[in-house]
Each structure stands twice: as structure tokens, then as C-alpha cells.
Measured scan of single mutants.
Amino acid sequence: MKVIFLQDVKGKGKKGEIKNVPDGYARNFLFKKGLAVEATPANLKELE
């Protein structure tokens, strides 16, 4: 799953980066803790 990092995550990505991460990791950790959002067209547009 492609995500946009909202904060630096040690060993995974830095704020503003767009990266592919495993689905479970994204849903169960990154999204729940507010560290990233899914890289949807709407979210990508907001990032610009």
C-alpha cells in the first residue's frame, strides 16, 4: 500500500515521503498512530 508519511518514522520514511509499505503495517500501526495516510489522489493533491 502506498502511504504518505506525516511524521518521520525511524527506518521506514521521513515526513512528506511517499512509499510502499505492507498493508497490515499501514493499517495497524501507521494509520492508527497518525504517522501516515493512504496515498489517494485527494491526499496527494493536498501534499502539493
Rank of each mutant, 00 (worst) to 15 (best):
P41V: 13
K15E: 05
D23H: 13
L30S: 00
F29A: 06
V3P: 00
L47H: 10
K32A: 14
F5K: 00
M1G: 03
L30K: 00
K45S: 10
L47D: 06
P22V: 07
L35A: 04
N43K: 11
K12I: 15
G11Q: 05
K15D: 02
L6F: 03
E17A: 06
V37T: 06
G34A: 07
E38N: 04
N43V: 12
G16A: 03
A39Q: 03
K10M: 12
A36P: 00
I18K: 02
K33M: 15
K33N: 15
P41E: 14
K45P: 06
L30A: 01
K2D: 11
I4W: 03
E48G: 12
K32M: 13
D8Y: 08
Y25T: 04
G24F: 13
E17P: 01
A39P: 03
G13N: 02
K10V: 11
D23S: 14
G16N: 07
K33G: 09
L44Q: 08
K10F: 13
A36K: 00
E48Y: 11
K15F: 06
K32G: 08
L44S: 05
G24E: 14
L44K: 06
V3E: 00
M1P: 04
L30W: 02
R27T: 09
A39T: 03
A26R: 02
K19W: 08
A26Y: 09
I18V: 13
G11N: 09
L6E: 01
D23A: 15
L47Y: 15
I4V: 09
K2W: 15
R27D: 06
E46V: 14
G34M: 08
G24V: 11
K14Q: 09
E38M: 09
K14Y: 10
D8H: 08
K12D: 06
E38G: 04
G16K: 02
M1T: 11
G16H: 08
K2A: 11
V37P: 01
I18Y: 03
K14M: 11
N28G: 10
G11W: 07
Y25F: 10
G34T: 03
E46S: 12
N28I: 07
T40I: 06
A26V: 07
D8K: 04
D23I: 15
M1A: 05
P22H: 09
K10N: 10
A36W: 01
N20K: 10
K32Q: 12
E17W: 03
L47Q: 09
D23N: 13
L44E: 06
A42F: 07
E38D: 04
D8Q: 04
P41Q: 12
K45L: 14
I4L: 10
K32P: 15
N43R: 12
E46N: 13
G16P: 00
A39Y: 13
L35T: 02
N20P: 07
E46P: 07
F29T: 10
F31H: 02
E48V: 13
E38S: 06
E46F: 14
G34S: 08
N43Y: 08
G16Y: 09
I4G: 01
L6D: 00
L44I: 13
K45Q: 13
K10Y: 10
N28D: 15
E17R: 02
I18W: 02
L35V: 04
G11I: 02
V37M: 10
K15P: 04
P41W: 11
P41M: 11
I18H: 04
P41A: 14
F29Q: 10
T40F: 06
Y25K: 04
N20T: 15
G13R: 01
G13F: 12
L30P: 03
K32N: 07
V3F: 00
N43F: 10
L44H: 05
K10S: 11
G24S: 15
E38A: 12
K12G: 13
M1F: 06
F5T: 00
M1H: 04
R27Q: 10
A36S: 01
L47E: 06
V37H: 04
F5G: 00
F31Y: 05
Y25N: 04
